[in-house]
Design a binder for these strands. Sequence first.
DNA 1: TTGTATGCGTTATCAG
DNA 2: CTGATAACGCATACAA
Lengths: 362, 362
Amino acid sequence: MTSSAFGDASALGDSPAQGDAAPRRATTIKDVAKKARCSIASVSRVVNDSGPVSTGLRRRIATAVAELDFRPSEVGRSLVLKRSRTIGVLVPSVTNPVFADCLAGLQETARRAGHAVLIAQSDYEPGREIEAIAPLIAERPAGLVLTVCDPAASAAHLRAATAGIPTVLLFNEAVAAGDAVVTVDNRGAGREIAEALIRHGHRRISFVAGRFAASDRARARFEGVGDALAAAGLPVAPPIEIDFIDGPDRIDLSDLLARSRPTAIVASNDLLAIGVVAALRRHGLAVPDDVSVAGFDGIAIGRLIAPALATIEWPARAMGAAAAAMLLDLVAGRGDAAARVVTLPHVWRPGGTLAGAPNVSR
Amino acid sequence: MTSSAFGDASALGDSPAQGDAAPRRATTIKDVAKKARCSIASVSRVVNDSGPVSTGLRRRIATAVAELDFRPSEVGRSLVLKRSRTIGVLVPSVTNPVFADCLAGLQETARRAGHAVLIAQSDYEPGREIEAIAPLIAERPAGLVLTVCDPAASAAHLRAATAGIPTVLLFNEAVAAGDAVVTVDNRGAGREIAEALIRHGHRRISFVAGRFAASDRARARFEGVGDALAAAGLPVAPPIEIDFIDGPDRIDLSDLLARSRPTAIVASNDLLAIGVVAALRRHGLAVPDDVSVAGFDGIAIGRLIAPALATIEWPARAMGAAAAAMLLDLVAGRGDAAARVVTLPHVWRPGGTLAGAPNVSR
DNA sequence: TTGTATGCGTTATCAG
DNA sequence: CTGATAACGCATACAA
């Protein structure tokens, strides 16, 4: 590559191979002080705009800061302040779009507030939560945002509390008084989804979930479905666990279809739902003609596939943003007790995967 | 705290509302030293297994560490070591599954190596890269993994180099000698995809991209497509930019379809490709009967939709893992020059969105 | 308004 | 083998 594109790449071209280069020491507050012929205290004062500094000195320091390209070390700052400008986030998996959306919103508002975001994944395994957040806690974060399997029995949540780290639960249900949480009405959503199915004439409805025991959300959604079924005098079948840790593309519905012949399947989340649709097709079943499918989350992809996925949509990105905002409030001592539990609204999003039950409307 | 640690959730039940609670000071190395009746130097030695310690003292310290649940502060450690056990990652967006996959793999290997991961997003805007990584650099990370718009003109890449921070480019092409990079053969992939289309009888092929100017990957992929078209004596139309920053669901193909009537569309990535399929349908065009579509990335969702998305698949998760591994090597001074550029293999994944050109095979 | 000095939690050097 | 202690980069109480 010779010339071109954007400006001039020569600055990079002759950069020495990294790693061999002596890792040039970052400029510190001392360097600035020396250059501005003052004490580090004054530098600190202008950088953080804390305390009085004469106009002349202020300018000298500003110049030195600019010329040396001084960026205060968050490490040094964190050490003295006993808390970093970092937010630790634990999600089951960043590859589930609903959590990726959360993360995006969370990162965005954190960044605007001058905070960095550390991530960790539990892979939906309760046992991994603890080891996943250990590195986060070791960084002495300002706070944590956790989506755990079961907040009532989460070692991770407990450790955060024990460590005195402000924590916001995301998507989980509040279990103890004082829990800060940004969540949704999982049970109500389950009810709505089942009611929609019942309206369409469905009577044999199956509920499938990934690791059912490892998700309070899945349990709540199932309970909601059960509420609606019971209210309609319909039988409530136990939830069916589906293994899709190794991707939603290897889903096996043989067992389910061998045991029962549901006219509709409710999946505990959209990613699973989309996998279920594909699996049904592999079994020669048409969606929605033979079987209707619905999910939860409202991930963007669901709108793009054909037929569009019927789902419950919550504002994942906004939830991440809200969690970050709430956490920052907590950290700043603005933890309004009334605002500790925020339940964001959801909407039922109709989609082509849901149609009338085969023997009824077709 | 009366009783104890794990297994007893009662500590949570009656925990005072957080934020009000006096943020109980984390136990430090001094606490351990006092309890073990020794110096902090010895504690450090057993914790890091550096230097000799008698068996007796070692046991006393181990006991104290366990009883006090001592976790060394990474902040203090980072300060003296001048570098934290943290890896900063910049991606265009975590909501694009291909980057979420990268991130997942990266985070996983980083975690195993005892490193935390800080994230940042550029939203595909070159101008945002610099401000996005500033918070990362402020944390004095061990290294950075960047996916930038244009590595040849990236202020972010330049600043990382200037700051002497080991950096690995992910998905980008190496532009300067010494660049460490984990990437794929974007141009070759473009060639393959176009060859497949040509084999199917397509002659009018359009290439669409998000922000074309903001992605060296898109450019390389387009060049590859051009290679194949030219080799087949077919005209090469300029790439078409499609705005899909606000989600791939609001894609407007009116312009494209008004100007030309391609029998096949190559999208610069899968997310866009799926959006294109949906947009075509809104225009009353059938895929693949009227128009074939293909993309790049091989995101999991592409396999689940119907018809399955024809695409080039690269091992995104493994790429993230490889980038982390390479970075850690670099940091440890194991930066084998020969291993600085790793190009991972891709495969052509046929899919139902690609069929014979309308006027040829049907 | 400015500077001095202390300490944050840790590693590492150097004496014992 | 063990301990005392000097950094590391920064904010801040206290002096001047």
